[in-house]
Simulated scan of single mutants.
Amino acid sequence: MLYYPEKDQPAIVAALNHGLPLIVCMCAAWCNNCEEWRAVFEEAARENSHTGCFVWLDIDEHFDMVTEVDLETLPVLLIHHREGVAFLGTFRPDKSTLLALIRGSGVSGRIDDPGIRDFLTEPL
């Protein structure tokens, strides 16, 4: 299932509390790449809801959440496990690449946490 912060916060919190990794696609409605990617991301979310908490984050609607993220090129993907950020960056939207990144083993290297997980779990 694909979640949206503006309407699915309780479900996002529940999924994260169950230990699922947070998988956020940061996009914008005006971005052609993002619109092409949305269907693939939704499909990955439907097929892999047991693997992660998939969130579609519109950067214009939730600018406060993305102030610490380089958004020069979209889409930007965040994969955040309990141990920390495993991936944060741009990538060519591809379902097999996405799934490989999600299945990656833990945190590799030091990636600064942009705090999106904290924003998504704050009480409304």
Rank of each mutant, 00 (worst) to 15 (best):
A28G: 10
I23A: 15
R46V: 01
G89Y: 02
V55K: 10
C53E: 05
E42F: 08
H50D: 15
Y3V: 00
M1S: 11
A45I: 01
W56P: 00
L16I: 12
A44N: 12
V40Q: 08
R46F: 01
A28D: 04
D94V: 05
T51D: 08
P93F: 08
C27G: 15
L20A: 07
C27I: 06
L99M: 15
K7T: 13
E43H: 01
L99V: 03
L101R: 12
S49H: 10
C31A: 14
L78F: 02
A45R: 00
L16W: 03
C34K: 08
I79F: 07
I12H: 06
V85F: 02
D64G: 09
H62M: 06
S108M: 02
A11L: 10
C34Y: 05
W37E: 11
R103V: 07
C53I: 08
I12M: 05
E61V: 06
D8C: 10
G109E: 11
V76S: 00
S108L: 12
R38K: 15
G109K: 15
F54C: 02
T97A: 14
P123A: 05
V69M: 03
L98N: 05
L98W: 08
E68V: 07
A29C: 00
G109P: 11
P114Q: 01
E6R: 13
W56L: 15
A44M: 09
H80E: 13
T121V: 04
H18L: 11
G19I: 14
L98G: 05
G19N: 09
C31G: 08
E83H: 03
E83Q: 12
F54M: 03
E42R: 13
L74F: 12
